[in-house]
């Protein structure tokens, strides 16, 4: 089974060298499927997340390459790695699904503490959100969960059947409220966690919709025997589409171009 893993860093290079070290691969061999900036506010330190396809374990893992991956200065890593989003002749066999790697769960990165615990973040977010909803004329009960990465998930149970209103067209109201909550409660300094909002299972529903669409376009690519290109998806959306097709041995996915015109290609394997 193919597998992917998320790596975080202050910069793309930083995240990539962490990935190289943890996967025991030179960064030039890693395929970056998607890049998401987690910068929480304009003055916060940036945090970059990379979705990386975990390469096949086994013969390719020679010590020289491993050391190269560790030693390579991070500034050069990006030069070596960014052209990799385009295909190179020797790459395909590296990208084959590998059962051995998917079961191996690499150890968690050391926690960067930033003074704002997720519990404090959660309390601040709940208080602000409750006030905001009250000012919007929406009565609601909130349920909050925390994860190991200091993220805060708040589920909104709105009274009086106004969930649809709170979600808005294509989720834009829920996204606006979520954005505002993060703007207000996250400190200027980099916080590791973020606040995520959901109501009436909208996020999961949206994810399922994206996955169904990914499968539809995959079928189209397979039927036509040539790549299908998807445009106008956000980095987060493309992230979900990559993951939805990662386990499918019949196709491979790749993002090409620069934001905001970055496109996702679904390519049939031969």
């Amino acid at each position: 089974m193919a597998s992917s893993k998320t790596f975080q860093g202050v910069t793309r290079e930083d995240a990539l060298s962490r990935a190289a070290a943890e996967l025991g691969r030179p960064s030039s061999e890693l395929e970056v499927l998607e890049v998401v900036s987690k910068r929480s506010s304009a003055d916060a330190a940036p945090c970059i997340q990379l979705l990386i396809r975990v390469p096949e374990a086994g013969p390719g893992l020679d010590e020289a390459a491993l050391l190269q991956g560790f030693r390579r200065p991070s500034a050069k890593v990006v030069e070596a790695a960014s052209p990799r989003s385009a295909s190179t002749p020797e790459s395909p066999h590296r990208l084959e699904p590998a059962a051995a790697t998917s079961s191996r769960e690499p150890s968690r990165e050391p926690r960067q503490t930033d003074g704002l615990s997720s519990k404090v973040l959660a309390r601040k977010a709940e208080a602000f959100l409750a006030d905001l909803l009250r000012h919007m004329g929406i009565g609601a009960r909130l349920e909050t969960e925390l994860d190991d990465d200091d993220n805060v998930y708040i589920e909104i149970f709105a009274e009086g059947g106004v969930g649809g209103l709170l979600i808005g067209r294509q989720g834009q109201t829920l996204d606006a409220v979520q954005y505002l909550v993060n703007r207000v409660v996250l400190p200027g300094a980099a916080a590791r966690g973020r606040v995520y909002l959901d109501t009436e299972g909208y996020r999961a529903r949206y994810r399922r919709k994206l996955e169904e669409m990914a499968h539809k376009y995959r079928d189209e690519a397979l039927r036509a025997g040539k790549p299908v290109t998807l445009e106008e998806f956000s980095p987060r959306d493309r992230w979900i589409i990559h993951q939805a097709l990662l386990d499918d041995p019949r196709v491979t996915t790749r993002s090409v171009g620069d934001e905001p015109d970055r496109k996702l290609m679904i390519i049939p394997r031969r």
């Binding site: 304009a42 905001l132 000012h135 919007m136 004329g137 929406i138 106004v162 209103l165 709170l166 808005g168 834009q172 109201t173 996204d175 606006a176 409220v177 954005y179 505002l180 703007r183």
Partner: peptide
């Protein structure tokens, strides 16, 4: 001013979106 407008007007847009939803409800 920058705090209520945001980068590329994103905060201002979020405020308008939230205001529209609340106004629609009212």
């Amino acid at each position: 001013l920058g705090k209520v407008i945001g980068k590329q007007g994103r905060t201002a847009r979020a405020i308008r979106t939230i205001l529209s939803a609340a106004a629609l409800k009212a």
